[in-house]
């Protein structure tokens, strides 16, 4: 039955691209003109994707305002059709899109904020995994501590920017003081995304803390990661770093290097 599948492909293309159905299509619409009915489909398709993007990028939307965000998403949706049946996957390319989006060029930090928001979005939907079992850790002999390979939770992400994106993100959360002023020159940001009890948080790591966590995330054992950081940052406080990361649910399972 090629006729049916041709019609369906034509129908889908017309919805996504906002085109007219080809004259050969077998379309029947009793109450409206076919073009009118197709416009309704097209608007609903784009409306859903706009809402999906607004839900994934609420800080970006607040930063630029609703009207601008609608223009931005309209062009994004034209450029990136939905490719998954799961709307949670939609919008991954936003940071790159914004970086090239001419009308947003003045907001130099916006692309990095969007990257942080996508990390938060992924963190929200990341799988559950048990956080570090401290009682299991107590069974490890102290002489093996340096060989500990600590894994991070699937909801943990790090986003680095030369702009203060963690402060910008936190200023736009529900309940935050709306009377804020952020100086873009206040420095770079090592934003850490984590999730605790279904709430996604963004905190800031020090340069040393970020270097250490990056090293741990790449699979370096505790001893190696710590020595490496202490060489560059003699003030690095492992004690505080570990306690903070444990508290934020960033640390998950551990293994011992060279042991099964």
């Amino acid at each position: 039955m090629p006729a049916l599948s041709n019609d369906q492909a034509d129908f889908a293309r017309a919805i996504v691209l906002g085109l007219d159905l080809s004259p050969q299509a077998h379309a029947v619409c009793p109450k409206y003109r076919v073009a009118t009915a197709m416009a309704v489909y097209h608007n609903n398709y784009r409306g859903n994707l706009h809402d999906t993007l607004a839900s994934a990028y609420p800080v970006t939307e607040q930063l630029v305002g609703k009207d601008f965000f609608r223009v931005l998403t309209k062009q994004f949706i034209e450029q990136y059709p939905s490719r998954s049946g799961n709307l949670h996957h939609y919008g991954a390319e936003m940071a790159d899109f914004i970086a090239d989006f001419e009308p947003a060029q003045s907001l130099v930090y916006l692309s990095d904020v969007a990257a942080l928001e996508w990390a938060c979005h992924r963190a929200y939907f990341a799988e559950d995994e048990a956080t570090l079992d401290v009682s299991g850790l107590s069974k490890v002999p102290a002489e093996n501590y340096a060989d500990l390979v600590i894994h991070t939770h699937p909801a943990c992400h790090m986003v680095r920017s030369i702009y203060p994106i963690a402060a910008i993100w936190n200023a736009h959360q529900p309940g935050a003081n709306s009377d804020f002023h952020i100086d873009l020159d206040s420095g770079s940001s090592n934003a850490l995304v984590s999730r605790k009890e279904n709430t996604v948080m963004v905190t800031e790591l020090t340069e040393a803390g970020a270097t250490w966590l990056q090293s741990i995330r790449s699979g370096a054992p505790l001893g190696e990661a710590t020595s490496g950081v202490l060489e560059r940052y003699p003030d690095f406080n492992l004690n505080t770093a570990l306690l903070n990361l444990l508290e934020q649910g960033v640390l998950a399972d551990f293994t011992l290097e060279n042991m099964p």
């Binding site: 630029v64 601008f68 965000f69 609608r70 223009v71 309209k74 930090y109 910008i168």
Partner: peptide, 20 residues
């Protein structure tokens, strides 16, 4: 859709120095 000429950010970006 809004008209495409509404392409100036008008949100909280005004509160970020150097960002508007």
């Amino acid at each position: 859709d809004p008209m495409d000429f509404v392409a100036v950010p008008k949100g909280t970006c005004e509160k970020i120095a150097g960002g508007t």
